[in-house]
Nucleic acid binder design. Sequence first.
DNA 1: CCGGTTCAATAAACCGGTTCGACAACTCGG
DNA 2: CCGAGTTGTCGAACCGGTTTATTGAACCGG
Lengths: 363, 363
Amino acid sequence: MDQKRPVRVRIIDVATEAGVSKSTVSIAFNNPQRLSAETTARIRSVADSLGYRPHPVARMLAQRQTRTLGILTPQALTVAFGNPFFSMFSQGVASVGEEFGYALLYVSPLHGSLARAAGQASVDGFVAIGLGEDHPEVEEIRSAGLPIVLVDSAAFPEHGSVEVDDEGGAFAAAQHLVELGHTDFLIIAVEPPYFAVGSDVVSPVLDGVMSRRMRGYRRALEAAGIELADERVVTGSAGFDGGVGAFNRGLDSGLHFTAVLVMSDAMAIGAIHAANERGLTVPGDVSLVGFDNIDEAEHTHPPLTTVHQPAREKGAAAARLLLAAIDRRGSGQPEHRRLGTRLIIRESTSRVAGERQEVNSET
Amino acid sequence: MDQKRPVRVRIIDVATEAGVSKSTVSIAFNNPQRLSAETTARIRSVADSLGYRPHPVARMLAQRQTRTLGILTPQALTVAFGNPFFSMFSQGVASVGEEFGYALLYVSPLHGSLARAAGQASVDGFVAIGLGEDHPEVEEIRSAGLPIVLVDSAAFPEHGSVEVDDEGGAFAAAQHLVELGHTDFLIIAVEPPYFAVGSDVVSPVLDGVMSRRMRGYRRALEAAGIELADERVVTGSAGFDGGVGAFNRGLDSGLHFTAVLVMSDAMAIGAIHAANERGLTVPGDVSLVGFDNIDEAEHTHPPLTTVHQPAREKGAAAARLLLAAIDRRGSGQPEHRRLGTRLIIRESTSRVAGERQEVNSET
DNA sequence: CCGGTTCAATAAACCGGTTCGACAACTCGG
DNA sequence: CCGAGTTGTCGAACCGGTTTATTGAACCGG
């Protein structure tokens, strides 16, 4: 049995082998111009032949920086990565992270506790996606002296934040359908209990986002004098399947509707699929508007009308704010950014079909 | 200007305040039963009131473990996260990571060097997605004494690995079309230069995967006596848009084909969309088989026939192998796992239409 | 009253680097 | 030939914890 125990080469080994002190070795790597060329060369070659790599953790400790950005999510990663939107957001964070040489650490609740998970993460700062008021980990992190940028939540003015105009986007979506003459609506929301583990509070994150969207829908409908009965709001789990389930439930409840507002594209794609399966054509029988504008929304059949939110820019902006906060180490004002949303009209929506044309063209 | 400089509370502060030594404080947290109940309680309460959190990096250094799993990808994260498959894989890794209390660190090339990036990552081990033979970072990591599990590559028998039967899946896909009577094929591949930065070698990863799939296609066609001209293989960037581009290019080249084999679902979805835009119906005019079986494949119109690969299980298996390797610290045999693929027949494929219909008139 | 246990708490070493101040040797102007 | 700078290297302290061997006090039976 060849015990392949590749004992790590330490800086002291290199120093001994090269006949210098460990400070000198360290300098040879981090500040070569302070050393004579030959010494540097010798140390380098010894290090190479020994296969020396500075221990990243020791280095982090001494330099007091990790060159790592943390992404904090109150949902399990298995659910987070199930949402294409999250991937796009990640792309944004990653793009600026990579540019500045930072790796990405994903932190999700461990054994139900996000705070504990955050506590044992070695990062220079956090991007927290949707931590609402009652999330104690924000305080936790602050007391650890780490900067944090909140996404989809402005509950903590003392920290940077990046938001998106959810309400405005939702309003535009609903208004668009109203203008097409629709009066009978179904709303598909993502259901609140996103996960339920351990003793921690359950994520009110999406709750915030979703309730803002709901507000936008409601405002537009009210403005058009359309009343929205509670049973016209159905929910399902985030993700494609949740969309088919919710749509079917809406259908089965016996409601009549010609327009569906869906709070996420993933669910909207599921809903389109469900509609087809049930013999309904989109947008002939039912018009449908999603939210997010994920990449696949353009390629559905029919292409999905949806509210674009700049997910990648959101991630990038959050990362930039965080890097800035890391740089100035606690001083300076936190920045708050709010990005726009806009309605993308494709082909999943159309004027309401002939007969029930009780047009309410005022507003 | 209130300088909010939340100086971190250190263990020594707690010790002083509680009138004990720092060892005692450490024990109070990690081995409470060794201490008298009252001392523990007092220390805990002092720590609470001071807001003490053990410094994760210091702790990692002392304990020689990070409780973090590294995910190594030779592509920039911006491109990796653009592929739904990657998200599914991540879900798998995350699910077992979360179960055992590990966070996830994504490591991608920094300034063009994956080796450098890997070197400064503080993890207990790596899951490397598709590192081919000529990737020096594997040796690099081994010499750092860290375990590594290779995914989609068995180039290093001394490390654990998880693979998938790409060739078999591709074979089944092609055979299915052959059985439906198709003889005129187009193959859409993902183009090799996935990125090109710095001095490092460009990822041969996907290359390996893609060439295995190609081999599968070819074998099935040859078995049916169908010859595949080189110009019938078109490429595009991974992702939806790459699919539409490639499909259009195939169409524009004047080739006649009734069947398309696409090496990824994302591209297949783009291809379906492109086909519709060009007035072709799927599967009426052209049959189409994807690869991966991502979640959205079920909800396309028509639902996509594709080769299922167990992406989540792949991630989970890799993570489990890695955790096992971390546990036994270098001893023990590396394990190699190979997972199956299977053809999922949905509705994007059908028997070839009667006569030699002229599919494409001109551009 | 004494040697042997047990229990609680501690001092010191350690994890593996970085960094600061000091020092010796060498250079150079006067 | 002396004193002031430079230059190259080193020792020691430090980052913030954990861990091991040790100590001192209390306990206990003989």
